[in-house]
Design a protein around this nucleic acid. Structure first.
Length: 385
RNA sequence: GUGAGUGUAGCUCAGUCGGUUAGAGCAUCAGGUUGUGGUUCUGAGGGUCGUGGGUUCGAUCCCCAUCACUCACCCCA
């Protein structure tokens, strides 16, 4: 027997209905906010992700699914959605055209990781990307949109926000932090490694000993430049005014290198260790990293599988017909009636004459609203029962 | 990549201190009911006890390996 690959799942009813419901809900709301669908290829040049996601994350170096195509190109299955959308944005020359562009997307992403609860090798994201708007109100709008989506889906969450600073303040802070870390002896192995790859992530270490060593570490929120500080303040004010509860998590680091300024994460307490249900932030430098004309951008991605256990589905009611034959002579009449009725409704049937009891059982189990049975009497009278 | 746990019917799980034909509930199918279901009763089908090797008179049970799944670390949605 051949099974699906590790970390890859088949999705079928009733889970597939939940999946569809999430996509439909997200799509409807994103369209209300002025976003339109973009479809980008699942396969991209590996270089695209190396340059955008960066080296500090594992998702390209360790977790990508590398492929060499017949032309000898180094390509891979996309590990995330933003890079492809930005590539398309630049390829369409929207960076040169100017103005704002807003896109949403959904589809499969691939990371070669060890699977666990809420983490798959093929998983699905719904995400949005907004280009050309540097105002922090866009950041707030995106967070409000996510709130609207989670409220519509009936999902409980907490929101964490942070500011990662900009080229004016982040490098300075980073130096301050690295200097601080150099004075601390006895950090865990992981932290020693993170000191080199992504020092800010050291702050988020779960190791108790590290936590005590880092209790008085310098935090980015205290080292923001004037503009970043002001924008972060505006964001907080808007969220307060619109009744969005949040906590400031100065240790929140978005995993990918391209983020700057606003970073946020929606977290669920009900789905295990992999608790981030949506994450995003601003990436004002990414378009120029990928050879485009400098264009501000902001977006988020949500993990659909992580939402599927949390969604409250609307109640469904019985619908459609079940039509069955009580005797072999009625089978052809039933077949014809089923075909006619299917032009307007959902119709289920069986190609086998059964007792009334059996038909009613099947109709009931399939949640049909009406059950029609045709037997000798109905054939004689030209009626239905 | 690292660590721990679990693999028995389609599903959820019992069980065997190593001993004849491995059980239950749910699900499926048939019947009790000659054309009114969902309740109930009766019966039936369905298992290489994950796979391979070892110990033993005898292994589903003990040992080793392997594979798969699960959870956690790392990382991240």
């Amino acid at each position: 027997m051949i099974n699906a690959l590790r970390g890859m799942k088949d999705t079928l009813s009733p889970q597939s209905e939940v999946y569809q419901y999430i996509i439909e809900t997200c799509t409807r709301i994103a369209q209300n906010y002025g976003f339109s669908l973009i479809e980008t290829p699942i396969l991209e040049e590996t270089a695209l992700f190396k340059r955008s996601v960066g080296e500090s994350s594992d998702i390209v170096g360790k977790e990508n699914v590398p492929i060499t195509d017949k032309g000898g190109n180094d390509v891979c299955l996309r590990p995330e959605g933003t890079a492809g959308v930005v590539r398309a944005f630049i390829q369409q020359k929207f960076d040169k055209a100017g103005g704002t562009r807003r896109f949403f997307y959904h589809g499969p992403m691939f990371r070669y990781e060890r699977p666990q609860k809420g983490r798959l090798r093929q998983f699905h994201q719904f995400g949005v990307e907004s280009f050309g708007e540097s105002d922090v109100r866009e950041d707030a709008t995106i967070i409000l949109m996510l709130k609207a989506i989670f409220d519509a889906l009936g999902i409980a969450y907490t929101l964490e926000i942070n500011s990662l600073g900009c080229p004016a303040c982040m490098p300075k802070y980073r130096t301050t932090l690295v200097d601080f870390l150099a004075t601390r002896e006895g950090l865990c192995e992981d932290c020693e490694r993170r000191k080199l790859t992504n020092p800010i992530r050291v702050l988020d270490c779960k190791n108790e000993h590290c936590k005590t060593l880092l209790a008085d570490a310098p935090l980015i929120v205290d080292h923001l430049c004037f503009t970043c500080k002001e924008d972060f303040g505006t964001l907080k004010t808007i969220l307060d005014e619109f009744g969005v509860a949040y906590t400031i998590n100065p240790k929140l680091v978005r995993g990918l290198d391209y983020y700057s300024k606003t970073a946020f994460e929606f977290v669920s307490a009900d789905i295990g260790a992999q608790s981030a249900i949506a994450g995003g932030g601003r990436y004002d430098r990414l378009v120029e990293f990928l050879d485009g004309k400098p264009t501000p951008g902001i977006g988020f991605a949500m993990g659909i599988e992580r939402l599927m256990d949390l969604v409250k589905m609307p109640q469904t009611s019985r619908n459609g017909y079940y039509i069955g034959a009580l005797c072999n002579e009625a089978l052809s009449v039933v077949f014809e009636l089923v075909d006619t009725k299917r032009r307007e409704s959902k119709v289920l049937t069986t190609y086998e004459a059964k007792s009334l009891k059996n038909h009613l059982k099947i109709a009931d189990k399939n949640e049909a609203k009406f059950c029609v049975c045709i037997g000798e009497d109905e054939l004689a009278n030209n009626t239905i029962g």
